[in-house]
Design a binder for these strands. Structure first.
Length: 884
RNA sequence: GGGGUUAUAGCUCAGUUGGUUAGAGUGUUACGUUGACAUCGUAAAGGUCACAGAUUCGAAUUCUGUUAACCCCA
């Protein structure tokens, strides 16, 4: 027995937690391996365990949950794998900061204790994030929750590292990498963000040995001068041809360095002569290799000048730059300083300017891994939605460089490599070792570094399913169905997963990549901590409910595009929830005597019943189609429009008469049936978008089953489509609108009943209206309704409107303002003329008649006739007005 | 330098294979609390679909160019 009364206002706080607990307690999110059942699976983009979810996460997870709930209702064996990412640099920075506040530091604590602290952090914030995902309504399979550093993932990471090493795809080497002096670690190329900045170009002259001649070089980073081991010019540069091969004297330092030619040098840039610092610049590094130059590191890991820089040793790199420039100037080496705009790399984590520095790091050879990953997308095995991201993905992979995977951090997967101090050999091993397998020595040191976080997240789709074991989960749920993520991590994550999935998972990791944009603030700026413009999704959920937030995040949004956050839009979504709530409340208040077993005969349906069932069927089809094509915003929009503009505005209003008339049980129960059917099924369509409110209402209204989330998706409703009913109902609705319009024109009280006289061009339509007089009475207060058949005399003192095939007269003695009415109708004529002209042009165009499909031509002809009839009626009316 | 996105009502945005009198939310104006909802209802005003070409019987939609803003890569 359902309750007949629910609260007047939608109050999400009163039920959201309750239903989440209900779903979770009943294991409705849990997926078991069921052989033979169609699988649908998504692995969550694991949020960083650093802190809390932001609006972007809310959007990402809403999209996933919609897809998951939709497919679950459609009968797929649906798995949504949740988990967190250990987020090496970011988390270490957070823990560092926490320690600093306690007056201690990671170095004081030591590695072991520090890692313990990081685990504590993970426990605290990991569970907070999972709580936040729950409050959003995410239907993740929590029994399977994973963490990138849990035992299974660690095992997978080791396995992959060892295999890649054994294949020679992982190697150690000294190369220029991007060094962050603040985070104190090497970074990969994509962890560096380039920003154009105004800087200076310093022109410095280097003396040619044993002459009074100088070669003028230009540099943006003079402080690296201490590491200069050469100066390069272009081989064809006439200015320097004679000097190639000579020796130069490095100012201040006094080192003798060669001047050589290399075609890398751009003769147009600066002076055409560049200082070469192989240990501090990637291009110089390569030139250094070609010309066999020494690499001299002149900076320490924290961005200070190294011991080999004399009096500058210990200075910060920028402080050194200032001093050095002063000194160069004093000693006459500085020629000039120019303003210069250039791109400067910044650490994507802390925004510190990175320092390119030579160091020994671990790398992955990417070329052979990238090829199949490109192929998988080009062949269409993996599809990006929207498609344009294919190009971005392929371009990056086609120009890929080796991936620096070692990080000088403590929080992460420690690299499984051991160095033997006795024989000097390096051993990479799946298991920890204490004895050197080469010489048997116990003098082993394990590599201190950890792996790039993305190395383990790259394995996420299969490591979470038990790889390297050949599990049933892998067999059923891998490849996953779709990956939902933002365009900002296509390189970091998507591309790496594809490469790793193909290499180790034995197949692509997902069939679709559904890319979404960023959630920005109302001014279009990125939400960020430093701007303080971020909006906490939890705050929105607490104020307005998760359903509201979810609905707001997906309406009016197209795949791949950014969106702006507006509180007004949140309110609009909340109002929609309230509307649905009250529509349901209305039904519940009128369900007395409802018979669950009653199903009406076809003949019992009213026009409105047939119409709403047909509209509902269209909506179901549209929502389904749009969900299948990842057009979630469109799907939500069609539900919004159906519920508000059709179901509430028209159907509920029209059902009132029948529901309030308790004597007429027969009609009343038909109305109850249709109302209940349409609402219950619409709730199912809406459930993926707004899981809580739909469950709350569903549990109150007549229903079958335990929970709406496991009810079946309305898939086969096409039989309810009824074009005739829609056409007739549309005419009724247009007539009602026209009458309302007239009444508004003359400021007639909307509630006041008054007569309406109609003239029909079509007798079927006339029957429709006479059969449904009540509709005009109920929604336009137009009563009684009289049908005029004699065309020769028209009602006098009446306002007029014309809709297709129907002339409407509203007798309004004393209310007609002839002048105003004339103006209004004249304007109408102008509009009609415009349309008629346009159509005439079209319909006399031979090309159109010959080439356009016949149904289009027919449609246009019908339109033309409609406008012409309308115009005739309006003109007649105008001439009548002229006689008054 | 290469690539991409965006340009539609005052504001924020939809408009999926070319055929709608170009839509929504919000804002604005007028009216309205009769028994789902004022978090509401009714009605209205508001757009040369950035600009210029091209393709087509037909372009907001396809193509080319221009302009502007933003983003990614180097």
């Amino acid at each position: 027995m359902q309750e007949t009364n629910i609260p007047k206002v939608y109050d999400p706080q009163s039920f959201e937690k309750k239903w989440y607990k209900f779903w979770e307690d009943n294991k409705l999110f849990h997926a078991e391996v069921e052989k033979g059942k169609k699988p649908y699976s998504i692995v969550i983009p694991p949020p960083n365990v650093t802190g809390q979810l932001h609006m972007g996460h809310a959007m990402d997870n809403t999209l996933q949950d919609i897809l998951i709930r939709f497919h679950r209702m459609r009968g797929y064996n649906t798995l949504w794998m949740p988990g967190c990412d250990h987020a090496g640099i970011a988390t270490q920075a957070k823990v560092d900061a926490a320690l600093r506040e306690e007056g201690t530091s990671r170095h004081e604590l030591g590695r072991k204790k520090f890692v313990e602290r990081a685990w504590q952090w993970k426990e605290k914030f990991g569970s907070r994030i999972m709580y936040q995902l729950r409050s959003l309504g995410s239907s993740c399979d929590w029994d399977r929750e994973r963490f990138t550093m849990d035992e299974g993932c660690s095992k997978a990471v080791r396995e992959v590292f060892v295999r890649l090493y054994e294949e020679g795809l992982i190697y150690q080497g000294t190369r220029i990498t991007n060094w962050c002096p603040h985070c104190n670690t090497a970074l990969s190329d994509i962890e560096v963000e380039h920003e154009t900045e105004m800087g200076h170009l310093y022109h410095i002259r280097y003396q040619v040995e044993n002459t009074d001649e100088f070669v003028e070089i230009a540099t943006t980073r003079p402080e690296t001068m201490f590491g200069d081991t050469g100066v390069a010019v272009h081989p064809d540069d006439e200015r320097y041809k004679a000097l190639v091969g000579k020796t130069l004297i490095l100012p201040i330092v006094g080192r003798h360095i060669p001047l050589f030619a290399d075609s890398y040098v751009d003769p147009q840039f600066g002076t055409g002569a560049v200082k070469v610092t192989p240990a501090h610049d990637p291009n110089d590094f390569e030139m250094g290799q070609r010309h066999d130059l020494e690499q001299i590191l002149v900076m320490t890991n924290d961005g200070r000048m190294a011991a080999n820089t004399g009096k500058y040793a210990g200075m910060d790199r920028y402080e050194c730059r200032r001093c050095l420039v002063e000194d160069l100037k004093e000693q006459g080496f500085l020629v000039k300083i120019e303003e210069h705009e250039h791109a400067v790399g910044h650490c994507s984590r802390c925004n510190t300017t990175v320092e390119p520095m030579a160091s020994k790091q671990w790398f992955v050879k990417m070329e052979s891994l990238a090829k199949p990953a490109i192929e998988a997308v080009k062949s269409g095995k993996i599809k990006f939605v929207p498609e344009r991201f294919t190009k971005i993905y392929c371009n990056w992979l086609e120009n890929i460089r080796d991936w620096c995977i070692s990080r000088q951090l403590w929080w992460g997967h420690q690299i499984p490599a051991w160095y033997c101090d006795s024989c000097g050999k390096t051993t990479v091993s799946r298991d920890d070792i204490t004895v050197c397998p080469v010489c048997g020595s116990h003098q082993l040191r394990r590599d201190e570094d950890v792996l790039d976080t993305w190395f383990s997240s790259g394995l996420w789709p299969f490591e979470t399913m038990g790889w390297p074991e050949e599990t049933e989960e892998l067999k059923q749920f891998y490849p996953t169905s779709v990956l939902v993520t933002g365009y900002d991590i296509i390189f970091f994550w998507v591309a790496r997963m594809v490469m790793m999935g193909l290499k180790f998972g034995g197949d692509i990791p997902f069939k679709h990549v559904f890319i979404h944009g960023l959630v920005r603030d109302s001014q279009g700026r990125k939400m960020s901590k430093s701007l303080g413009n971020g909006i906490d999704p939890v705050e929105v959920i607490e104020k307005y409910g998760a359903d509201t937030l979810r609905f707001m995040l997906i309406t009016g949004n197209t795949p791949g595009n950014d969106m702006r956050f507006y509180w007004e839009r949140v309110e609009s979504a909340r109002n929609f929830a309230n509307k649905l709530w009250n529509a349901s409340r209305f039904m519940l208040m009128n369900l007395e005597g409802f018979d669950k077993t009653f199903v009406p005969e076809k003949a019992q349906y009213s026009l409105a019943d047939q119409w709403i069932l047909s509209r509902y069927a269209h909506t179901a089809e549209l929502v389904t189609k749009n969900l299948e094509h990842f057009e979630l915003g469109e799907a939500a929009r069609s539900l919004y429009e159906f519920i508000w503009n059709e179901f509430c505005d028209w159907y509920i209003e029209l059902s009132k008469a029948r529901l309030y008339d308790k004597e007429n049980t027969a009609e009343r129960r038909v109305a109850q049936y249709v109302l209940s059917y349409v609402l219950e099924h619409t709730l199912r369509l809406l459930h993926p978008f707004m899981p809580f409110i739909t469950e709350e209402i569903w549990q109150h209204i007549p229903h079958e089953g335990k929970s709406i989330m496991i009810s079946s998706w309305p898939d086969n409703e096409m039989a309810k489509i009824n074009d005739v009913a829609e056409k007739n109902m549309t005419a009724v609705m247009e007539t009602i609108k026209a009458i309302r319009n007239i009444r508004a024109q003359v400021n007639a009280a909307t509630g006041k009943r008054s007569e309406v006289i109609l003239y029909f061009a079509d007798s079927n339509m006339q029957k429709t209206f006479t059969d449904n007089k009540g509709y005009l009475a109920a929604l336009a207060a137009a009563e009684p309704m009289t049908v005029w058949t004699d065309k020769s005399s028209r009602p006098e003192n009446a306002m007029t409107a014309v809709v297709s095939g129907i002339e409407i007269y509203l007798p309004m003695a004393g209310l007609i303002d002839v002048e105003k009415e004339t103006v209004r109708l004249t304007k109408e004529i102008t509009n009609l003329n415009k349309e008629i002209e346009r159509l005439a042009k079209k319909l006399t165009n031979e090309g159109f008649l010959a080439k356009a499909p016949s149904e289009v031509v027919e449609k246009e002809k019908e339109k033309q006739k409609g406008y012409a009839d309308k115009k005739a009626a309006v003109e007649e009316r105008l001439s009548y007005l002229a006689t008054l």
